[in-house]
Design a protein around this nucleic acid. Structure first.
Lengths: 199, 199
DNA sequence: AATACTAGAACGAACGCTCGTTCTAGTCAA
DNA sequence: TTGACTAGAACGAGCGTTCGTTCTAGTATT
């Protein structure tokens, strides 16, 4: 029981299913992707897919919560590595820009798909934990007097709205250069918008 | 022909179909709305629907281009009524906030649905005419030295990103108060982000 | 070591249902 | 009577899902 036997299959199969699903969903969307497509793309049979997941929605749900958890972990780490609010928020935007370039499917699926259409249970993205944490960070920034005191939602939108807009534009193919190119250009005015300091 | 007879049906039927469709699409999404649903909601029969529109996609396309055209007209008018860039942009945000409250379906459909999934031909929203016009206005603002000179996409994202984020948050039900309440709160930092003047 | 047994992972043909679309019949104004 | 319009039954394709089965590996028994 306690021996280190390598069972090759139980989690690996799930992973294959999940990553194929993320790819297909971000490329074609939930409704244009059939379970057969997932089977074909992942190399896992339909029967096996249904052995591991209750139904198509459960696959989507697993993909989604994996990504949310990963985002949360990353942002939590950023929070602990930086002290000043400005460094924290800047690092968050840098992270979001990087991941948009390296794994566009992730961002595509997180920001750009209407989860409510196929995950009726799930709350909207912007009330998910990572977004809540971002607002938490902004709130701390106000308490520390780094950010002007104002409505929390307003401040968060001002700080991250521009970056998020750049991300969706990039995913739409409206921006040609990689996002990290624009990090400074976006960060300076974003921070200027809410900072207590007049630059 | 030129008499004032009220033919009840020719355009009215199309309008009934289009407005029922907008309502259903924004509530349940394209794929969760069947043509039968549209028939039932609009009070127009399936046969009649297919008499007026080639297929389901054509209905979606008509809804979409109607909205885009309407937006464009509105923004064009704003452009001509205001001279300074700041007034123009502020008025655009005010308009977007108003329409979000009065006809949330419109904004829901324009901003929040993944058109590429069901309108493969259509370019993404942010390269549609209204958005282009908004960028045009920003560009003029830079030439007039009202807005700091920087990448056009960056400036537009900074100016409108926060407002757009507020809109999607409101549509998601994360914000309880009507958007126009926040107009000043959003506008001040948004403008501060890109203005040439240090406030 | 050889055998019998068990658990669960993998498989894909088949099912039933819903969808978009077509078809045929009917209505009404000119 | 004609032609634009309406109606809803009928059709067939494609979907998500189920099910009976086979395959694989680990375990217990001899």
């Amino acid at each position: 029981m306690d021996s280190a036997i390598n069972k090759q299959t139980p989690l690996m199969t799930q992973q294959k299913i999940l990553s194929a699903t993320l790819m297909l969903f971000s490329k074609k969307g939930y409704f244009n992707t059939s379970v057969r497509d997932i089977a074909h793309e992942s190399g896992v049979s339909i029967g096996s897919i249904y052995h591991h997941f209750k139904d198509k929605e459960a696959i989507a749900s697993a993909v989604y919560s994996n990504l949310v958890e990963r985002m949360l972990a990353e942002i939590t780490q950023i929070q602990s590595k930086h002290i000043r609010t400005s460094s924290r928020c800047r690092a968050i935007i840098a992270f979001l820009f990087d991941i948009t370039e390296q794994e566009p499917e992730v961002m595509e699926f997180m920001l750009y798909s209407k989860h409510r259409e196929f995950l009726p249970e799930e709350p909207p993205v912007c009330s998910s934990k990572p977004f809540e944490l971002m607002r938490e960070i902004v709130k701390d920034g106000m308490l520390a007097n780094e950010i002007q005191s104002m409505d929390l939602m307003v401040a968060s939108s001002c700080l991250f709205g521009a970056a998020l807009r750049m991300i969706t534009s990039r995913l739409d193919g409206v921006i040609e250069k990689p996002l990290p190119t624009y990090l400074e250009a976006i960060w300076t005015p974003s921070w200027r918008a809410v900072s207590t300091q007049t630059l």
